[in-house]
Nucleic acid binder design. Structure first.
Length: 891
RNA sequence: GGCCGGUUGGCGCAGCGGGAGCGCAGGUGCCUUACAAGCACAAGGUCACAGGUUCAAAUCCUGUACCGGCCACCA
């Protein structure tokens, strides 16, 4: 067996493990009891992974590795998303930098450029996923624009089209004049801005009660060019007299009606609302109700169209200034107020969105809502943490028809064909250039592409052969769980549920796990513009992948966001340090070193079963059995933070700090004692590595290679068997746990006595333990271990042993520990300490006495609680008596 | 406007009905041959505030005050 290197070289080991796993082809496990299929939320091909991905992927990998080790048929499907707008914007920018414009080169060449981009960045992303240790199925990557995937998307469109779930309509959509495309409501972001409320005078055609104009209030004066009405509230009876009258729209000299509509709030502004049906969704709705004309004054880049004289060709901003100037010049600007309001911005390019009237495709959601709601209310799909269920249901309830067409080139082109000759129109699975109705050759395809989310809604099943190869899907759908961020519950999760329930008549996954949003150290969102984002690859480089993963796992609690502890250089934007990741790295190092100790002490080892030779052995086996239960249940319930803490506590505080220390004395012995200790150490380490592996795959796999193995053991820890709680359950031993607890107390007592009196560790002490009878054997059994750990020269233990002269006594549960300090101690300090101890114990005793003399408590509390507290009180009173006896002795 | 989180030792966080925990930082002492990226020991909190429910509240309920997020969008 080759020796383990003294230091753990993360970069080299990680690379070697990746090669090993890939060579062994362990990623996909096809045969097994039960299925664990997980689809990775496909990252956009636009660039690098961020901390959110790192968190998401770590959680998934922990879950997937755990299931693989448990023997489930396991497949974690890898893929990337073509991300329509995002990618197109990036490619546009890249081409622009080379002096090329999209329109110049045309659609086909532009799409080629997008593919080049995809191939470059898609590969980059796969590489990053790999470096994090993610055990995705690398042999079968998917992309939302793959041919087979595209076929699925097309089928969804065609089926919904023919089932009347997809329709085309002229509607107000959120238009981005920069990206020149519509975007969905969910893709619009509101931003608070300081603006103005302009009060404009609109002259009445006929004066009413001597009044010859009314005042409308607007935040967007430029849209007045397209006004076709003025509305008042039906509750605002002062304005009843105006209803039915007409105003002469300034500049345009158009007569437009005044009407009443419930939408209007009489209390806001002037109480008169100018109505521009083509440039505001609410005005559009009013326009529909009152049969108003919809006049579109802007082109696709939000410049004023032909026919508006001096205003034609102006941008929105220029037009606003010009219109306001015109009103001022003509004495029609009543007044201007400051007004704080929110304005929609494009989530991609951040331009202010323009509500714009245009022809778009929509999905009618009415028929999809029911099953998608039912899937969650029935409990078939569960959200973790549970509170997200309500968010989902609220969103589902308020769901409106979904605008799915985008005026882009990069994406799934809408498969609707039109005949220019006879007006035929249909959605087709295969392209055609001949009209099936009239045989004409003037057939054209719709120019628009589909919303990216339209294609990603099929992710759980179009990545698994649907619609052609249903055999692949069998047994792997619904998938086990979806792990994702809360901000795409509506955009993505909900739509996957709708698509899956519609096309497969089943849910896409059983559980939805929402992880916390990762914030920067100061509690704000990590963002590119602020330069406070942390790059997971930098963390891996500095601390290793296992350290990054483990730290991230500790952050998974029920919280909805977490602050990531990392310092970033403001100028270079490079990672300075991440203290908590550094702590996690210490844990990795600890695992490495402890393993090195065990493996370095295996001389003369022969394989054999673990046997609890001492109570210490029984104790660590018992703790291990409990750990396996906690970890197994924890991962199953997605409680990763708790799992990480339990693993850390077991390995560091129990295994390293106590068990390995106990073992040192036994390893110095010879024969059976040494051999059995070696076997026990190997047994515990082996199981601990298995339990740690899903969280920290690299270091555990690397160490495991060095471990002695049973005949026929699996070739890699990654596919080795999980320590199931049931098979370890027989090791659980509460007596041993109690005994070792007492024993640790004895060691601690000597150590703290030593520290209190400033006695050098080199100075050995004589120690006498007066133990309760049932504890005597344990202490005798481990006396040599205790002597090593507490630096004791002479260790005696007996029930009722008298306190030696000039000794310091410490009372612990089940024993009294006397350290002989002849000539070393100032007993005043000892008196003070004991008095403090007495006070604390007396306080505790009073607390419990009070509780136990409360008739309500005795009558109503659970019997085992009462029993436990009685025992506790007895113990405290016993300790108190001993402390008081010692105080009396000191005088 | 509606909904959801948070408020626990100097800092970052766990715990979410039965004696206040973890990790850092700080203190003291140790290079005890696995580990100084370490070990030991000690110190540090009336669990935001006010009511209530309960035999019992950091934990459940109501309200208040600050932080943070999501959804809606009144021109």
């Amino acid at each position: 067996m080759e020796e383990m290197p003294k230091t753990y070289d993360t970069a080299a080991v990680e690379q070697r493990m990746l090669d090993k796993w890939l060579e062994g082809d362990y990623y996909r496990r096809s045969a097994g009891v039960g299925d664990c299929t997980v689809t990775i939320p496909p990252p956009n091909v636009t660039g690098k992974l961020h901390m959110g991905h790192a968190m998401d992927d770590t959680i998934q990998d922990t879950f997937v590795r755990f299931n693989r080790m448990r023997g489930r048929s396991t497949r974690w499907i890898l893929g990337t998303d073509h991300a329509g707008i995002a990618t197109q914007t990036k490619v546009d920018k890249k081409l622009a930098a080379e002096g090329i414009s999209r329109r110049e080169i045309g659609r086909d060449k532009f799409i080629d450029a997008c593919w080049d981009w995809t191939n470059e960045y898609g590969g980059f992303i796969v590489e990053q996923v790999k470096r994090m240790g993610c055990s995705v199925d690398f042999s079968d990557p998917h992309f939302t624009m793959d041919d087979d995937y595209a076929k699925g998307v097309r089928k969804v469109f065609c089926d919904w089209y023919h089932d009347d779930l997809i329709y085309r309509g002229k509607r107000i959509v959120n238009w981005c004049p920069h990206c020149t495309t519509a975007i969905a409501d969910d893709e619009a972001e509101y931003k608070e801005e300081d603006g103005h409320l302009w009060h404009l005078r609109y002259p009445l055609v006929e004066p009413i009660d001597g009044q010859d104009y009314i005042v409308v209030a607007t935040t967007r004066p430029e849209t007045m060019l397209g006004d076709t009405g003025v509305a008042v509230s039906p509750k605002d009876h002062d304005k009843d007299k105006f209803v039915g009258a007409k105003v002469m729209l300034p500049i345009m000299d158009r007569e437009i009606p005044i009407f009443s509509d419930f939408y209007v709030d009489a209390g806001f502004g002037s109480g008169f609302v100018k109505v521009t049906p083509a440039h505001d969704p609410n005005d559009f709705a009013m326009g529909e109700r009152h049969g108003l004309e919809k006049i579109n004054i802007f082109d696709e880049t939000a410049h004023v169209v032909e026919g508006y004289g001096e205003f034609t060709g102006m941008s929105r901003e220029e037009c606003r200034e010009a219109v306001v100037a015109w009103f001022e010049e003509h004495g029609l600007l009543d007044h201007v107020e400051d007004h704080h309001h929110s304005v929609m911005h494009c989530y991609r390019c951040d331009s202010a969105l323009e509500p714009w009237l245009s022809e778009q495709w929509f999905v009618a959601v009415d028929k999809l809502k029911g099953p998608a709601t039912e899937a969650v209310t029935s409990g078939n799909i569960k959200f973790h943490p549970e509170r997200w269920t309500q968010s989902y249901l609220t969103w589902m309830e308020n769901l409106k028809d979904w605008c799915i067409s985008r005026q882009l080139w990069w994406g799934h082109r809408i498969p609707v064909f039109y005949c220019e000759d006879c007006g035929w129109e249909d959605a087709l699975m295969e392209d055609t250039d001949v009209c099936p109705k009239c045989g004409g050759h003037h057939v054209r395809q719709d120019e628009d592409v589909l919303d990216t989310w339209f294609s990603s809604q099929l992710w759980t099943f179009a990545t698994q052969g649907w619609p052609d190869n249903m055999e692949l899907l069998k047994g792997h759908h619904p998938t086990a769980a979806l792990f994702t961020a809360r901000d795409i519950i509506a955009l993505w999760v909900a739509r996957m549920i709708m698509a899956s329930t519609y096309f497969l008549d089943e849910i896409p996954f059983h559980d939805v796990v929402i992880y916390a949003t990762i914030l920067a150290k100061d509690g704000t969102r990590m963002s590119k513009s602020k330069g406070n984002g942390v790059n997971p690859m930098d963390l891996i480089e500095k601390y290793g992948a296992d350290a990054m993963r483990f730290n991230l796992l500790t952050l998974v609690t029920n919280n909805q966001d977490v602050r990531f502890d990392a310092n970033i250089d403001k100028k270079t934007r490079e990672l300075i340090d991440s203290p908590r990741t550094e702590q996690a790295r210490s844990f990795v190092t600890k695992i490495w070193n402890a393993s090195r100790f065990v493996l370095g002490n295996l001389e003369g080892f022969t394989p054999g079963e673990p046997v609890a030779r001492t109570q210490a052995d029984a104790w660590i086996f018992s703790r291990l059995a409990r750990l396996s239960k906690v970890v197994t249940e924890g991962i199953s319930a997605y409680q990763f933070g708790e799992v990480a803490r339990e693993l850390h506590n077991f390995f560091w505080n129990e295994f390293c700090d106590w068990y390995i220390e106990f073992s040192k004395a036994s390893l110095r012995a010879e024969g059976e004692e040494r051999l059995q200790t070696q076997r026990n150490l190997v047994f515990v380490l082996d199981n601990a590595l298995r339990l740690l592996h899903p969280a920290m795959p690299f270091v555990t796999e690397a160490i495991w290679e060095h471990l002695p193995k049973a005949e026929g053991e699996k070739p890699a820890l990654m596919v080795a068997a999980w320590p199931e709680p049931e098979t370890l359950a027989s090791w659980i031993d509460p007596d041993a746990e109690r005994a070792v607890g007492m024993l640790c107390g004895v060691v601690g007592a000597v150590r703290s006595t030593r520290a209190r009196y400033g006695i050098s560790p080199k100075q050995e002490l004589a120690v006498v333990v007066n133990a309760q009878p049932e504890n005597v054997t344990v202490l005798e059994e481990l006396s040599s271990q205790i002597s090593v750990m507490a630096r004791v020269s002479e260790f005696t233990v007996a029930a009722g042993a008298p306190k030696p002269a000039e000794s310091a006594a410490v009372v612990v549960e089940g024993a009294e520990v006397y350290s002989v300090l002849t000539g070393m101690v100032d007993f005043d300090a000892e008196r003070t300490r004991l008095a403090k101890e007495q006070k604390k114990l007396a306080g505790d005793a009073a607390k419990f006495s009070k509780k136990l003399s409360n008739p309500g408590f005795l009558a109503k509390a659970a019997p085992e609680i009462v029993e436990k507290d009685r025992a506790k009180l007895a113990e405290i009173e016993d300790q108190l008596a001993r402390v008081e006896a010692q105080l009396a002795e000191l005088g």
